[in-house]
């Protein structure tokens, strides 16, 4: 790795950490009833599923940093 990226530490994988902010703060995206799952409106299950998707966004960044020994 060259000196510049080492200093600033930016790698595209960090963009993953922004994804949950877009997915959850853009409320019109999920403020709806359909599609339902087991009778649970979209609004409720979408946000609940994001508890796992948020984790899925963080793990690659963690693995990247561990490999780099940060």
């Amino acid at each position: 790795m060259d000196e510049k990226t080492k200093k600033h530490g930016f790698h595209p994988v960090y963009l993953l950490l922004i994804v949950p902010f877009i997915a959850l703060l853009w409320v019109p995206l999920y403020n709806r009833i359909e599609p339902q799952i087991f009778g649970i409106p979209f609004f409720y299950w979408y946000q609940t599923v994001w508890t796992f998707l948020g984790t899925a966004c963080t793990i690659p960044v963690y693995l990247y940093e561990e490999r780099k020994g940060k």
Partner: peptide
């Protein structure tokens, strides 16, 4: 509270 307690983790991480 659900988006709140999801979005606090990127903050924790960084």
């Amino acid at each position: 509270a659900v988006p709140f307690t999801i979005l606090m983790y990127p903050v924790l991480f960084v």
